[in-house]
């Protein structure tokens, strides 16, 4: 594998998103939402202004869990199928580059753009809040940013996988939307439904493990278990064993969510 080839493709993808202001737009969206949540999150209770990092992160998690998967899926769904449909894939593949290098280059460039906009958007808010945060709070906020980047990378990996399998862009976009619905809206409902229907008999013990089958849930758990105050806000915390809730372990699970779809995409794309 030649890393120079991967870097060339990744560099083009990254600078494309910088140049067409995609990164700027997404960063501004994150900044606007994060600032609004930090300062006006408690407006319903009749107060405004920054209260605590725990509450801010808890609110941001609820937002990010919807937003980042959607942005990542939109960003990556046409990575390969788009090139194929436009007719530029043959030209790219006639170059001294392997299919895996091309795929990795595409992924890394897009992941770089997504990570940059996430860190820039939330990082700016972190800077604004830094005067009011102690080191521990800053550490938590950094952890939230890092896990947000991992969440984006996981869904981007899924999007790139779809992009390899889909026959055309229309189907790829439909599949991406279906994937978002499944992981962000339906998955948890299915698990809870199974628990309720079985009167708690079915799935109670395996529930924590089943949650690991959804990167959005892994992200949620990563952030919930990092904060004592927040943990109590979520009922799920009561069913999730602390042995599974180690951030290093959950980080590894998230890494698997990034690597596995990419590996499947590479396998399919090489065929």
């Amino acid at each position: 594998m030649e890393f120079a080839q991967i870097a060339t493709v990744a560099g083009k993808e990254f600078w494309d998103r910088i140049r067409n202001r995609w990164v700027l737009a997404v960063a501004l969206v994150f900044t606007a939402f994060a600032l609004s949540i930090a300062y006006f999150g408690a407006a319903q209770q009749g107060t405004v202004g920054f209260r605590s990092i725990e509450v801010t992160i808890a609110s941001l998690v609820s937002l990010v869990i919807y937003l980042i998967p959607l942005i990542a899926l939109v960003l990556g769904f046409d990575a390969i199928v788009g090139e194929r449909e436009r007719g530029s894939l043959d030209l790219l593949l006639s170059m001294p580059i392997t299919r895996v290098e091309l795929l990795l280059g595409k992924y890394l460039g897009l992941a770089g753009a997504l990570a940059f906009s996430t860190v820039a958007g939330f990082g700016l808010v972190g800077l604004v809040l830094s005067a009011q945060l102690d080191l521990a709070a800053l550490f938590h906020y950094f952890g939230f940013m890092l896990s947000s980047v991992l969440l984006g990378c996981a869904f981007l990996s899924l999007a790139v996988m779809l992009s390899v399998f889909a026959a055309d862009r229309t189907r790829a976009s439909g599949l991406a939307i279906a994937m978002w619905f499944f992981f962000v809206l339906i998955f948890d409902l299915l698990l809870l439904g199974a628990l309720v229907v079985s009167g708690g008999q079915w799935g109670g013990e395996v529930m924590p493990y089943l949650l690991l089958l959804n990167p959005a849930d892994v992200f949620r758990i990563l952030n919930i278990f990092a904060l004592e105050d927040v943990r109590t806000l979520y009922g799920l915390a009561t069913v999730f064993p602390p042995t599974l809730a180690r951030s290093d372990l959950l980080g590894l699970v998230m890494a698997a969510w990034i690597a596995l779809p990419l590996a499947i995409a590479a396998w399919r794309f090489r065929k």
Partner: peptide
């Protein structure tokens, strides 16, 4: 294969290049 590809130039039918470059 890289050495072979470096010897080759290819102009596809209806060449599609990148609009933003």
């Amino acid at each position: 294969f890289r050495a072979v590809r470096r010897k080759i130039g290819y102009l596809p039918e209806n060449v599609v290049l990148y609009d933003n470059l």
